[in-house]
Design a protein around this nucleic acid. Sequence first.
DNA 1: CGCATACTTGACGTCATTCAAACCGTGTGG
DNA 2: CCACACGGTTTGAATGACGTCAAGTATGCG
Lengths: 229, 229
Amino acid sequence: MNLACATCPVKESAACAVLTPEEREAMATAGRTRVLKRGEMLFAAGDEDAACATLLSGALKVSAVDIDGNEQILALVHPAGFIGELFAPFAHHDVVALTESRLCTFAKADIERAIEDYPAMARALLRRSQADLLATRNLLELTGHASAEARLAALLHDFAAAASDSSCHLAQHFELPLTRGEIGNMLGLTIETVSRKLGELEDMGAIKREGKRGIALRNPELLHEISGR
Amino acid sequence: MNLACATCPVKESAACAVLTPEEREAMATAGRTRVLKRGEMLFAAGDEDAACATLLSGALKVSAVDIDGNEQILALVHPAGFIGELFAPFAHHDVVALTESRLCTFAKADIERAIEDYPAMARALLRRSQADLLATRNLLELTGHASAEARLAALLHDFAAAASDSSCHLAQHFELPLTRGEIGNMLGLTIETVSRKLGELEDMGAIKREGKRGIALRNPELLHEISGR
DNA sequence: CGCATACTTGACGTCATTCAAACCGTGTGG
DNA sequence: CCACACGGTTTGAATGACGTCAAGTATGCG
Protein backbone atom coordinates (compact mmCIF):
# COMPACT_ATOMS: atom_id res chain seq x y z
CA MET A 1 0.00 0.00 0.00
CA ASN A 2 1.34 3.42 -0.93
CA LEU A 3 1.84 6.13 1.60
CA ALA A 4 -0.73 8.82 2.15
CA CYS A 5 1.23 11.57 3.84
CA ALA A 6 -1.70 13.96 3.68
CA THR A 7 -3.60 11.92 6.24
CA CYS A 8 -0.56 10.87 8.26
CA PRO A 9 -1.26 11.35 11.97
CA VAL A 10 2.36 12.21 12.74
CA LYS A 11 3.19 14.30 9.70
CA GLU A 12 4.06 17.25 11.95
CA SER A 13 6.31 15.41 14.35
CA ALA A 14 7.95 12.49 12.54
CA ALA A 15 11.41 12.69 11.01
CA CYS A 16 9.98 13.32 7.53
CA ALA A 17 8.29 16.51 8.76
CA VAL A 18 11.49 18.36 7.95
CA LEU A 19 11.37 17.48 4.26
CA THR A 20 10.05 19.74 1.53
CA PRO A 21 6.83 18.57 -0.15
CA GLU A 22 8.82 17.36 -3.18
CA GLU A 23 11.31 15.45 -1.06
CA ARG A 24 8.53 13.90 0.93
CA GLU A 25 6.83 12.85 -2.25
CA ALA A 26 9.98 11.06 -3.32
CA MET A 27 10.16 9.27 0.02
CA ALA A 28 6.50 8.36 -0.18
CA THR A 29 7.00 6.38 -3.39
CA ALA A 30 9.71 4.32 -1.70
CA GLY A 31 7.80 3.57 1.51
CA ARG A 32 4.95 1.25 2.34
CA THR A 33 2.52 1.28 5.22
CA ARG A 34 2.19 -1.81 7.29
CA VAL A 35 -0.05 -2.89 10.14
CA LEU A 36 1.18 -5.15 12.93
CA LYS A 37 -1.09 -6.88 15.41
CA ARG A 38 -0.10 -7.32 19.03
CA GLY A 39 2.83 -9.72 19.25
CA GLU A 40 3.79 -9.46 15.58
CA MET A 41 7.42 -8.77 14.87
CA LEU A 42 8.77 -6.02 12.61
CA PHE A 43 12.19 -7.60 12.54
CA ALA A 44 14.28 -9.93 14.66
CA ALA A 45 17.81 -9.69 16.02
CA GLY A 46 20.18 -10.90 13.35
CA ASP A 47 18.07 -9.90 10.35
CA GLU A 48 20.36 -8.62 7.67
CA ASP A 49 18.01 -6.36 5.81
CA ALA A 50 15.83 -5.16 8.63
CA ALA A 51 13.48 -2.43 7.53
CA CYS A 52 13.41 1.09 8.92
CA ALA A 53 10.12 2.61 9.95
CA THR A 54 8.28 5.51 11.46
CA LEU A 55 5.54 4.53 13.89
CA LEU A 56 2.21 6.16 13.04
CA SER A 57 0.05 4.73 15.81
CA GLY A 58 0.22 2.03 18.45
CA ALA A 59 3.33 1.06 20.40
CA LEU A 60 6.39 -1.14 19.89
CA LYS A 61 8.99 -2.68 22.12
CA VAL A 62 12.69 -3.11 21.37
CA SER A 63 14.01 -6.14 23.17
CA ALA A 64 16.94 -8.49 23.47
CA VAL A 65 16.73 -12.17 24.33
CA ASP A 66 19.63 -13.80 26.16
CA ILE A 67 20.84 -17.37 25.82
CA ASP A 68 18.39 -18.83 28.35
CA GLY A 69 15.49 -17.20 26.57
CA ASN A 70 14.89 -14.32 28.98
CA GLU A 71 13.65 -11.20 27.30
CA GLN A 72 14.89 -7.76 28.28
CA ILE A 73 12.96 -4.77 27.00
CA LEU A 74 15.39 -2.01 26.04
CA ALA A 75 13.04 0.66 24.80
CA LEU A 76 9.45 1.49 23.94
CA VAL A 77 8.58 3.25 20.72
CA HIS A 78 5.73 5.74 20.62
CA PRO A 79 4.03 7.31 17.59
CA ALA A 80 6.38 9.47 15.48
CA GLY A 81 9.29 7.37 16.74
CA PHE A 82 11.79 6.05 14.26
CA ILE A 83 12.98 2.43 14.26
CA GLY A 84 16.05 1.11 12.53
CA GLU A 85 19.74 0.62 13.14
CA LEU A 86 21.15 2.66 10.34
CA PHE A 87 24.80 1.74 10.11
CA ALA A 88 24.67 -1.82 11.39
CA PRO A 89 24.91 -4.70 8.91
CA PHE A 90 22.25 -6.59 10.87
CA ALA A 91 19.69 -5.83 13.57
CA HIS A 92 20.86 -6.29 17.15
CA HIS A 93 17.43 -6.45 18.73
CA ASP A 94 13.89 -7.64 18.18
CA VAL A 95 11.14 -5.12 17.50
CA VAL A 96 7.62 -6.29 18.34
CA ALA A 97 4.21 -4.62 18.44
CA LEU A 98 2.70 -4.15 21.91
CA THR A 99 -0.67 -3.10 20.51
CA GLU A 100 -2.04 -3.00 16.99
CA SER A 101 0.33 -0.61 15.25
CA ARG A 102 0.53 1.20 11.96
CA LEU A 103 3.95 1.87 10.51
CA CYS A 104 5.47 3.55 7.53
CA THR A 105 8.31 1.27 6.43
CA PHE A 106 11.32 1.84 4.18
CA ALA A 107 14.15 -0.33 2.99
CA LYS A 108 17.32 0.57 4.82
CA ALA A 109 18.92 1.52 1.52
CA ASP A 110 16.20 4.11 0.92
CA ILE A 111 16.81 5.72 4.27
CA GLU A 112 20.53 5.72 3.67
CA ARG A 113 20.01 7.45 0.36
CA ALA A 114 17.69 9.98 1.99
CA ILE A 115 20.35 10.78 4.57
CA GLU A 116 22.82 11.47 1.79
CA ASP A 117 20.43 13.47 -0.36
CA TYR A 118 18.52 15.44 2.26
CA PRO A 119 20.71 17.00 4.95
CA ALA A 120 17.63 17.99 6.92
CA MET A 121 16.73 14.31 7.19
CA ALA A 122 20.11 13.47 8.64
CA ARG A 123 19.71 16.22 11.21
CA ALA A 124 16.21 15.08 12.11
CA LEU A 125 17.39 11.51 12.62
CA LEU A 126 20.34 12.76 14.65
CA ARG A 127 17.95 14.62 16.90
CA ARG A 128 15.82 11.54 17.31
CA SER A 129 18.80 9.32 17.94
CA GLN A 130 19.99 11.65 20.70
CA ALA A 131 16.54 11.57 22.24
CA ASP A 132 16.53 7.76 22.13
CA LEU A 133 19.95 7.76 23.74
CA LEU A 134 18.71 9.94 26.55
CA ALA A 135 15.65 7.75 27.09
CA THR A 136 17.78 4.62 27.21
CA ARG A 137 20.14 6.24 29.71
CA ASN A 138 17.20 7.23 31.86
CA LEU A 139 16.07 3.62 31.91
CA LEU A 140 19.60 2.52 32.71
CA GLU A 141 19.75 4.97 35.58
CA LEU A 142 16.49 3.59 36.87
CA THR A 143 17.38 -0.09 36.72
CA GLY A 144 20.84 0.48 38.10
CA HIS A 145 20.36 1.26 41.75
CA ALA A 146 16.73 1.79 42.59
CA SER A 147 14.55 -0.58 44.63
CA ALA A 148 11.75 -2.50 42.95
CA GLU A 149 9.26 -0.02 44.37
CA ALA A 150 11.14 3.00 43.04
CA ARG A 151 11.53 1.47 39.58
CA LEU A 152 7.85 0.73 39.34
CA ALA A 153 6.86 4.17 40.62
CA ALA A 154 9.11 5.84 38.07
CA LEU A 155 7.77 3.70 35.23
CA LEU A 156 4.18 4.47 36.17
CA HIS A 157 5.04 8.13 36.34
CA ASP A 158 6.54 7.96 32.85
CA PHE A 159 3.50 6.16 31.49
CA ALA A 160 1.21 8.74 33.04
CA ALA A 161 3.23 11.46 31.34
CA ALA A 162 3.24 9.61 28.01
CA ALA A 163 -0.51 8.97 28.16
CA SER A 164 -1.24 12.67 28.59
CA ASP A 165 -1.30 14.81 25.46
CA SER A 166 0.17 17.85 27.16
CA SER A 167 3.66 16.59 27.84
CA CYS A 168 4.00 18.61 31.03
CA HIS A 169 1.02 17.14 32.85
CA LEU A 170 0.08 13.62 33.92
CA ALA A 171 -2.89 11.57 32.79
CA GLN A 172 -5.06 10.68 35.79
CA HIS A 173 -6.20 7.41 34.22
CA PHE A 174 -4.36 5.28 31.71
CA GLU A 175 -3.94 1.73 30.46
CA LEU A 176 -0.64 -0.06 30.90
CA PRO A 177 0.72 -0.90 27.45
CA LEU A 178 2.64 -3.82 28.98
CA THR A 179 1.76 -7.05 30.73
CA ARG A 180 3.21 -7.69 34.20
CA GLY A 181 5.79 -9.91 32.61
CA GLU A 182 6.83 -7.20 30.18
CA ILE A 183 7.09 -4.64 32.96
CA GLY A 184 9.32 -7.09 34.78
CA ASN A 185 11.44 -7.63 31.68
CA MET A 186 11.82 -3.90 31.34
CA LEU A 187 12.74 -3.17 34.95
CA GLY A 188 14.74 -6.31 35.67
CA LEU A 189 12.13 -7.77 38.05
CA THR A 190 9.97 -10.88 38.15
CA ILE A 191 6.26 -11.02 37.45
CA GLU A 192 5.56 -11.72 41.11
CA THR A 193 7.55 -8.77 42.37
CA VAL A 194 5.79 -6.44 39.94
CA SER A 195 2.42 -7.72 41.08
CA ARG A 196 3.29 -7.39 44.77
CA LYS A 197 4.74 -3.92 44.48
CA LEU A 198 1.76 -2.71 42.49
CA GLY A 199 -0.37 -3.93 45.37
CA GLU A 200 1.80 -2.07 47.86
CA LEU A 201 1.66 1.14 45.84
CA GLU A 202 -2.11 0.77 45.89
CA ASP A 203 -2.15 0.09 49.65
CA MET A 204 -0.16 3.22 50.36
CA GLY A 205 -2.58 5.26 48.28
CA ALA A 206 -0.36 6.26 45.40
CA ILE A 207 -2.38 4.51 42.70
CA LYS A 208 -5.48 2.41 42.17
CA ARG A 209 -5.63 -0.64 39.94
CA GLU A 210 -8.64 -0.65 37.64
CA GLY A 211 -9.02 -4.03 36.05
CA LYS A 212 -5.93 -5.83 34.79
CA ARG A 213 -4.40 -3.01 32.77
CA GLY A 214 -5.95 0.19 34.05
CA ILE A 215 -4.21 2.51 36.50
CA ALA A 216 -5.63 5.59 38.22
CA LEU A 217 -3.30 8.08 39.85
CA ARG A 218 -4.35 8.77 43.41
CA ASN A 219 -1.34 10.67 44.68
CA PRO A 220 1.08 11.65 41.89
CA GLU A 221 3.23 13.56 44.35
CA LEU A 222 3.72 10.47 46.49
CA LEU A 223 4.47 8.42 43.38
CA HIS A 224 7.15 10.90 42.40
CA GLU A 225 8.54 10.80 45.91
CA ILE A 226 8.78 7.01 45.90
CA SER A 227 10.47 7.00 42.52
CA GLY A 228 13.37 8.91 44.06
CA ARG A 229 13.77 11.51 41.32
CA MET B 1 45.36 26.69 22.75
CA ASN B 2 44.54 26.34 19.08
CA LEU B 3 43.92 23.00 17.50
CA ALA B 4 46.66 21.18 15.69
CA CYS B 5 44.76 18.72 13.52
CA ALA B 6 47.92 17.61 11.77
CA THR B 7 49.16 15.90 14.91
CA CYS B 8 45.74 14.79 16.15
CA PRO B 9 45.88 11.15 17.26
CA VAL B 10 42.31 10.48 16.19
CA LYS B 11 42.17 12.49 12.98
CA GLU B 12 41.30 9.34 11.03
CA SER B 13 38.50 8.13 13.26
CA ALA B 14 36.87 11.13 14.96
CA ALA B 15 33.73 12.80 13.63
CA CYS B 16 35.76 15.57 11.95
CA ALA B 17 37.55 12.99 9.79
CA VAL B 18 34.73 13.32 7.28
CA LEU B 19 35.35 17.02 6.69
CA THR B 20 37.32 18.45 3.80
CA PRO B 21 40.62 20.13 4.73
CA GLU B 22 39.01 23.56 4.36
CA GLU B 23 36.02 22.67 6.50
CA ARG B 24 38.28 21.20 9.11
CA GLU B 25 40.37 24.35 9.12
CA ALA B 26 37.24 26.36 9.83
CA MET B 27 36.35 24.06 12.72
CA ALA B 28 39.87 24.24 14.07
CA THR B 29 39.69 27.98 14.55
CA ALA B 30 36.53 27.57 16.63
CA GLY B 31 37.80 24.76 18.85
CA ARG B 32 40.24 24.64 21.73
CA THR B 33 42.17 21.75 23.17
CA ARG B 34 41.87 21.10 26.84
CA VAL B 35 43.49 18.70 29.29
CA LEU B 36 41.58 17.21 32.21
CA LYS B 37 43.26 15.42 35.10
CA ARG B 38 41.66 12.41 36.73
CA GLY B 39 38.51 13.49 38.52
CA GLU B 40 38.17 16.82 36.73
CA MET B 41 34.79 17.55 35.25
CA LEU B 42 34.12 18.64 31.67
CA PHE B 43 30.59 19.72 32.54
CA ALA B 44 27.96 18.92 35.14
CA ALA B 45 24.31 17.96 34.88
CA GLY B 46 22.28 21.12 34.58
CA ASP B 47 24.93 23.23 32.84
CA GLU B 48 23.24 25.38 30.27
CA ASP B 49 26.08 25.91 27.88
CA ALA B 50 27.90 22.63 28.24
CA ALA B 51 30.66 22.29 25.72
CA CYS B 52 30.88 19.60 23.07
CA ALA B 53 34.11 17.71 22.60
CA THR B 54 35.98 14.98 20.83
CA LEU B 55 38.18 12.88 23.10
CA LEU B 56 41.76 12.63 21.81
CA SER B 57 43.29 10.48 24.54
CA GLY B 58 42.43 9.17 27.99
CA ALA B 59 38.96 8.12 29.12
CA LEU B 60 35.81 9.79 30.43
CA LYS B 61 32.73 8.65 32.28
CA VAL B 62 29.18 9.90 31.78
CA SER B 63 27.28 9.64 35.02
CA ALA B 64 24.10 10.65 36.79
CA VAL B 65 23.77 11.37 40.50
CA ASP B 66 20.47 10.68 42.22
CA ILE B 67 18.96 12.59 45.12
CA ASP B 68 20.81 10.64 47.84
CA GLY B 69 24.13 11.27 46.12
CA ASN B 70 24.60 7.84 44.55
CA GLU B 71 26.43 7.95 41.29
CA GLN B 72 25.43 5.77 38.36
CA ILE B 73 27.83 5.50 35.44
CA LEU B 74 25.90 5.49 32.17
CA ALA B 75 28.68 5.29 29.64
CA LEU B 76 32.42 5.35 29.13
CA VAL B 77 33.97 7.48 26.41
CA HIS B 78 37.05 6.28 24.57
CA PRO B 79 39.37 8.22 22.24
CA ALA B 80 37.63 9.52 19.09
CA GLY B 81 34.37 9.52 21.03
CA PHE B 82 32.15 12.57 20.87
CA ILE B 83 30.60 14.15 23.97
CA GLY B 84 27.72 16.58 23.99
CA GLU B 85 23.95 16.59 24.11
CA LEU B 86 23.22 18.46 20.93
CA PHE B 87 19.59 19.42 21.11
CA ALA B 88 19.13 19.70 24.85
CA PRO B 89 18.99 23.14 26.47
CA PHE B 90 21.10 21.85 29.37
CA ALA B 91 23.25 18.83 30.14
CA HIS B 92 21.49 15.88 31.74
CA HIS B 93 24.59 14.15 33.04
CA ASP B 94 28.04 14.77 34.47
CA VAL B 95 31.11 14.07 32.35
CA VAL B 96 34.30 13.41 34.31
CA ALA B 97 37.81 12.31 33.37
CA LEU B 98 38.80 8.81 34.53
CA THR B 99 42.44 9.31 33.59
CA GLU B 100 44.34 12.32 32.34
CA SER B 101 42.54 13.17 29.12
CA ARG B 102 43.04 15.45 26.17
CA LEU B 103 40.00 16.86 24.46
CA CYS B 104 39.17 19.04 21.55
CA THR B 105 36.30 21.25 22.74
CA PHE B 106 33.77 23.38 20.88
CA ALA B 107 30.95 25.64 21.94
CA LYS B 108 27.64 23.93 21.34
CA ALA B 109 26.69 26.74 18.94
CA ASP B 110 29.73 25.96 16.79
CA ILE B 111 28.76 22.31 16.52
CA GLU B 112 25.20 23.24 15.70
CA ARG B 113 26.44 25.51 12.94
CA ALA B 114 28.71 22.77 11.63
CA ILE B 115 25.78 20.36 11.48
CA GLU B 116 23.87 22.88 9.39
CA ASP B 117 26.76 23.76 7.12
CA TYR B 118 28.43 20.40 6.66
CA PRO B 119 26.01 17.54 5.93
CA ALA B 120 28.83 15.03 6.25
CA MET B 121 29.29 16.16 9.85
CA ALA B 122 25.64 15.55 10.63
CA ARG B 123 25.92 12.07 9.18
CA ALA B 124 29.09 11.35 11.12
CA LEU B 125 27.48 12.43 14.37
CA LEU B 126 24.40 10.38 13.56
CA ARG B 127 26.58 7.34 13.10
CA ARG B 128 28.29 7.99 16.40
CA SER B 129 25.03 8.61 18.19
CA GLN B 130 23.67 5.30 16.95
CA ALA B 131 26.80 3.56 18.17
CA ASP B 132 26.43 5.20 21.58
CA LEU B 133 22.82 4.10 21.66
CA LEU B 134 23.82 0.53 20.97
CA ALA B 135 26.50 0.63 23.65
CA THR B 136 24.06 2.00 26.20
CA ARG B 137 21.52 -0.69 25.34
CA ASN B 138 24.16 -3.35 25.75
CA LEU B 139 24.89 -2.03 29.22
CA LEU B 140 21.18 -1.95 29.97
CA GLU B 141 20.83 -5.53 28.85
CA LEU B 142 23.68 -6.49 31.12
CA THR B 143 22.45 -4.75 34.25
CA GLY B 144 18.88 -5.85 33.70
CA HIS B 145 18.82 -9.52 34.55
CA ALA B 146 22.30 -10.88 35.00
CA SER B 147 23.86 -11.96 38.29
CA ALA B 148 26.68 -9.95 39.84
CA GLU B 149 29.14 -12.54 38.58
CA ALA B 150 27.84 -12.41 35.03
CA ARG B 151 27.88 -8.60 34.97
CA LEU B 152 31.43 -8.48 36.14
CA ALA B 153 32.56 -11.16 33.72
CA ALA B 154 30.96 -9.31 30.82
CA LEU B 155 32.51 -6.01 31.84
CA LEU B 156 35.96 -7.56 32.12
CA HIS B 157 35.45 -9.14 28.73
CA ASP B 158 34.56 -5.77 27.25
CA PHE B 159 37.57 -4.12 28.85
CA ALA B 160 39.83 -6.83 27.53
CA ALA B 161 38.43 -6.22 24.06
CA ALA B 162 38.77 -2.44 24.40
CA ALA B 163 42.35 -2.71 25.65
CA SER B 164 43.39 -4.73 22.62
CA ASP B 165 44.20 -2.79 19.44
CA SER B 166 42.80 -5.43 17.14
CA SER B 167 39.14 -5.15 17.97
CA CYS B 168 38.49 -8.83 17.35
CA HIS B 169 40.93 -10.19 19.88
CA LEU B 170 41.31 -9.79 23.64
CA ALA B 171 44.19 -8.25 25.54
CA GLN B 172 45.73 -10.82 27.88
CA HIS B 173 46.76 -8.16 30.40
CA PHE B 174 45.15 -4.79 31.03
CA GLU B 175 44.58 -2.13 33.64
CA LEU B 176 41.07 -1.43 34.89
CA PRO B 177 40.20 2.17 34.03
CA LEU B 178 37.76 2.23 36.96
CA THR B 179 38.01 1.89 40.72
CA ARG B 180 35.95 -0.82 42.44
CA GLY B 181 33.47 1.82 43.42
CA GLU B 182 33.11 2.99 39.83
CA ILE B 183 32.67 -0.55 38.58
CA GLY B 184 29.96 -0.94 41.17
CA ASN B 185 28.28 2.29 40.09
CA MET B 186 28.36 1.10 36.52
CA LEU B 187 26.94 -2.37 37.14
CA GLY B 188 24.55 -1.52 39.96
CA LEU B 189 26.59 -3.33 42.63
CA THR B 190 28.40 -2.33 45.81
CA ILE B 191 32.15 -2.04 46.25
CA GLU B 192 32.16 -5.12 48.47
CA THR B 193 30.29 -7.29 45.99
CA VAL B 194 32.64 -6.26 43.19
CA SER B 195 35.63 -7.11 45.34
CA ARG B 196 34.21 -10.47 46.41
CA LYS B 197 33.17 -11.51 42.92
CA LEU B 198 36.55 -10.55 41.51
CA GLY B 199 38.03 -12.84 44.12
CA GLU B 200 35.68 -15.64 43.07
CA LEU B 201 36.49 -15.18 39.40
CA GLU B 202 40.14 -15.46 40.37
CA ASP B 203 39.49 -18.58 42.50
CA MET B 204 37.75 -20.32 39.63
CA GLY B 205 40.67 -19.54 37.36
CA ALA B 206 39.08 -17.14 34.94
CA ILE B 207 41.31 -14.18 35.77
CA LYS B 208 44.21 -13.17 37.97
CA ARG B 209 44.42 -9.89 39.84
CA GLU B 210 47.75 -8.13 39.43
CA GLY B 211 48.03 -5.32 41.91
CA LYS B 212 45.01 -3.10 42.49
CA ARG B 213 44.12 -2.33 38.91
CA GLY B 214 45.80 -4.97 36.80
CA ILE B 215 43.92 -7.95 35.39
CA ALA B 216 45.35 -10.94 33.54
CA LEU B 217 43.05 -13.22 31.58
CA ARG B 218 43.55 -16.83 32.54
CA ASN B 219 40.61 -18.43 30.84
CA PRO B 220 38.80 -16.08 28.44
CA GLU B 221 36.49 -18.87 27.33
CA LEU B 222 35.33 -19.43 30.90
CA LEU B 223 34.89 -15.70 31.37
CA HIS B 224 32.69 -15.55 28.31
CA GLU B 225 30.73 -18.53 29.56
CA ILE B 226 30.09 -16.91 32.93
CA SER B 227 29.00 -13.66 31.32
CA GLY B 228 26.12 -15.51 29.71
CA ARG B 229 26.49 -14.09 26.21
C1' DC C 1 55.94 9.04 59.65
C1' DG C 2 51.04 9.84 59.54
C1' DC C 3 47.07 10.34 57.19
C1' DA C 4 43.98 9.47 53.25
C1' DT C 5 42.18 6.59 49.78
C1' DA C 6 41.25 2.31 47.90
C1' DC C 7 40.63 -2.39 48.59
C1' DT C 8 39.62 -6.86 51.09
C1' DT C 9 37.24 -9.85 54.26
C1' DG C 10 33.73 -11.44 57.63
C1' DA C 11 29.14 -11.61 60.01
C1' DC C 12 24.59 -10.46 59.60
C1' DG C 13 20.18 -8.59 57.63
C1' DT C 14 17.01 -7.67 53.91
C1' DC C 15 14.75 -7.58 49.75
C1' DA C 16 13.75 -9.78 45.61
C1' DT C 17 13.54 -14.40 43.60
C1' DT C 18 11.88 -18.98 43.49
C1' DC C 19 8.57 -22.42 43.94
C1' DA C 20 3.90 -23.51 44.57
C1' DA C 21 -0.95 -22.86 44.53
C1' DA C 22 -5.03 -20.46 43.68
C1' DC C 23 -7.64 -16.89 41.15
C1' DC C 24 -9.98 -14.48 37.31
C1' DG C 25 -11.73 -13.35 32.71
C1' DT C 26 -12.24 -15.22 28.24
C1' DG C 27 -12.96 -18.29 24.69
C1' DT C 28 -14.11 -23.18 23.19
C1' DG C 29 -16.59 -27.25 22.84
C1' DG C 30 -19.89 -30.50 24.62
C1' DC D 1 -25.73 -23.40 29.69
C1' DC D 2 -22.02 -25.40 31.89
C1' DA D 3 -17.40 -27.52 31.96
C1' DC D 4 -13.00 -26.71 31.05
C1' DA D 5 -8.66 -25.06 29.54
C1' DC D 6 -5.59 -21.15 29.11
C1' DG D 7 -3.07 -16.79 29.77
C1' DG D 8 -2.38 -13.42 32.81
C1' DT D 9 -2.41 -12.32 37.54
C1' DT D 10 -2.35 -12.61 42.63
C1' DT D 11 -0.77 -14.42 46.99
C1' DG D 12 2.02 -17.13 50.36
C1' DA D 13 6.27 -19.26 52.34
C1' DA D 14 11.08 -20.42 52.00
C1' DT D 15 15.48 -19.58 50.02
C1' DG D 16 19.39 -17.11 48.66
C1' DA D 17 22.02 -13.34 46.57
C1' DC D 18 23.42 -9.03 47.38
C1' DG D 19 23.63 -5.09 50.60
C1' DT D 20 24.97 -3.20 55.07
C1' DC D 21 27.88 -2.62 58.83
C1' DA D 22 32.22 -3.11 60.75
C1' DA D 23 37.26 -4.32 60.92
C1' DG D 24 41.33 -4.75 59.06
C1' DT D 25 44.96 -4.44 55.11
C1' DA D 26 47.63 -2.38 51.38
C1' DT D 27 49.27 1.70 48.72
C1' DG D 28 50.46 6.26 48.06
C1' DC D 29 51.34 11.11 49.20
C1' DG D 30 52.48 15.27 52.00
